[in-house]
Design a protein around this nucleic acid. Structure first.
Length: 211
DNA sequence: TGTAAGATCTAG
DNA sequence: TAGATCTTACAA
């Protein structure tokens, strides 16, 4: 990172998750673990809305223990654990009381790539954070980060110029059994660090018998 | 209190 | 293409 890095204003997170998601593309996300910095440039995100969004954790009868952070103040981290093995990092947006978040799906390692590689068992650069579970592992994100305020002591987002509109593509969200038909996933077109399963504009619809 | 499913990743 | 592995939500 250059010396001119400016922390992103948290006021941005009060907006609609879709707008926040697009705005986050190209920005730099960094975590500090025991004084070690790791992170990179965000290249792929997904927006999750409130109760009307069937793919969202907020699509329940109300606020639950898991999704409470999504209803909390914007500019905080929402972390959850799934599949018994993976952490997911989201950034809360929309005003307090309204559920909304942006899932960080992939980034291009630019800070502490060596440390990230060691956390990822020496895998190559492209596979360090190309997928939400991988990203969380590379950045040492755990449940302890749930509810953590951004730009304070652990998770930081730095401003960067907006990517040109033609460089941004969208598609349906990945891995959902409901709500995947809406285009709420945004990524940088042709960027090699975008997750696979995500390659190309074609939406991968989960095919599972009996569900 | 029990059960089913999940915003995934990896190896075979 | 399926298994790993455990938390959460919801029904009984």
């Amino acid at each position: 990172m250059g010396s001119g890095a400016v922390p992103l204003s948290l006021a941005l997170f009060e907006a609609d998750p879709r707008d926040v998601a697009r705005a986050l593309l190209g920005k730099t996300l960094v975590t500090v673990t025991d004084g070690v910095l790791t992170g990179g440039r965000i290249v792929e995100v997904e927006a999750y809305l409130g109760a009307d969004d069937l793919g969202s954790h907020a699509a329940t009868r109300g606020i639950t223990r898991r999704n409470a952070t999504m209803y909390g103040p914007p500019g905080h981290a929402y972390v959850y654990f799934t599949y018994g093995m993976h952490h997911m990092l989201n950034l809360v947006c929309a005003p307090e009381g309204t559920a909304g978040a942006v899932l960080i799906r992939a980034l291009e390692p630019t800070v502490g790539a060596e440390e990230m590689s060691s956390r990822r068992e020496g895998r190559p650069l492209r596979e360090l954070a190309s997928g939400p579970g991988r990203l969380a592992a590379a950045l040492a994100i755990t449940m302890g980060d749930n509810g953590m305020k951004l730009n304070e002591n652990r998770i930081f987002v730095y401003d960067a110029p907006e990517p040109p509109p033609f460089a941004v593509a969208s598609s349906g969200r990945i891995g959902l059994s409901a709500g995947h038909e809406i285009e709420l996933r945004y990524y940088l077109r042709d960027d090699p660090f975008v997750s696979r399963g995500a390659t190309g504009p074609v939406t991968k619809v989960r095919t599972r018998a009996g569900r």
